[in-house]
Amino acid sequence: MTGLFPGFLILSAAMFSVGAVGVLVRRNPLVVFMSIELMLNAANLALITYARYTHTMAGQVFALIVIAVAASEVVVGLALITGVYRSGHKLNLDELSEMSE
């Protein structure tokens, strides 16, 4: 095991944590979506780190698939946000939770 392996994993863990806290703390749905992207990116970093240091290819393949999943998630999510905005609601997740009632 070479020296930088723990560094990559700690960076990945830190980015994932910041993204998770962003999802929990922020109220703007666009920022929440960006935080989800952050978490997916952190997972990608961990996948590629393991692929490199265990000499396998699966991590890189699944990193590509995660990128595709993230792209489709952004497309559908932004379509939803635009729809909510056009139906006259404010872009605030605390107020949008009243829609479920």
Partner: peptide, 9 residues
């Protein structure tokens, strides 16, 4: 990368 992550939140 970490600074960018903090900036997002």
């Amino acid at each position: 990368a970490f600074g960018g992550a903090l900036g997002v939140v």
